[in-house]
Simulated scan of single mutants.
Amino acid sequence: MKLFSNSINFLEQGLDYSSLRQKVISQNIANVDTPNYKAKDVSFRTEFDQALQSQMQAKKTDPKHLDFKYGQSSMISIEEKNNTSYNENGNNVDIDNEMSLMAQNQIYNQALVDQLNNEFNSLKMVIRGGK
């Protein structure tokens, strides 16, 4: 019997991504005036979508074996944006874009937290016997 659905694992990975992205965006904003600083971004969504489609399965020789968990370290990576330059000092941080990305990330994070709360509320209802 499977106790937790894969959705909790996926939501956890999404929250890890959102947390790291918030740190990277904050770092970009903090370095807006640093000469030759190149903005960074976090890559995750394409790998996440591929993982959802492939649904990796572990080969079980016993029904009591646990399911495979995705390794989050291989799914999330930080990439430097080298293709632009907004300032004459070599810095490519666009403060308006970074603030917009931060707002988007906060909305994304809150949606994941709300969904995770729904998952746990469903589990609580099952544990209480539907009450």
Rank of each mutant, 00 (worst) to 15 (best):
N6G: 15
S7L: 12
I8Y: 14
N9S: 14
F10Q: 09
F10H: 07
F10M: 13
L11F: 08
Q13W: 02
Q13P: 00
D16N: 12
Y17D: 02
Y17S: 03
Y17H: 06
S19H: 07
S19W: 10
L20C: 03
L20I: 14
R21C: 10
R21K: 15
K23G: 06
V24K: 08
V24P: 06
I25E: 04
I25L: 13
Q27F: 03
N28A: 07
I29T: 12
I29Q: 10
A30T: 10
A30L: 15
A30E: 14
V32H: 08
V32L: 12
V32I: 11
D33W: 07
T34Q: 09
P35N: 06
N36K: 10
N36I: 01
N36V: 00
Y37C: 14
K38I: 02
K38S: 04
A39D: 02
A39I: 07
A39P: 06
K40C: 05
K40N: 11
V42N: 03
S43W: 02
F44V: 07
F44I: 07
T46F: 07
E47P: 00
E47L: 02
E47W: 01
E47I: 00
E47A: 14
E47N: 11
D49M: 07
D49L: 11
A51R: 07
A51K: 04
Q53I: 07
S54Q: 15
Q55R: 12
Q55P: 02
Q57V: 03
A58K: 13
A58P: 00
K59Q: 04
K59L: 13
K59N: 03
K60V: 08
T61L: 15
T61R: 08
D62F: 11
D62N: 15
P63W: 14
P63M: 15
H65K: 09
H65D: 13
L66R: 06
L66C: 01
L66Y: 05
D67T: 03
F68A: 12
K69C: 00
K69R: 13
K69E: 14
K69V: 08
Y70A: 10
Y70W: 01
G71K: 05
Q72Y: 01
Q72D: 00
S73F: 03
S74A: 14
S74V: 12
I76N: 06
I78E: 09
E79W: 01
E79I: 15
E79M: 11
E80I: 13
K81H: 05
K81T: 05
N82T: 11
N82K: 13
N83K: 13
T84Y: 15
T84V: 15
S85W: 01
Y86E: 07
N87H: 09
N87A: 03
N89Y: 03
N89D: 15
G90E: 05
N91Y: 11
N92Q: 02
V93S: 05
V93I: 11
D94W: 08
D94G: 10
I95W: 05
I95K: 07
I95L: 15
D96Y: 05
D96G: 01
N97Q: 09
N97P: 00
N97E: 12
E98F: 08
E98L: 04
M99C: 02
S100P: 02
S100K: 10
S100G: 09
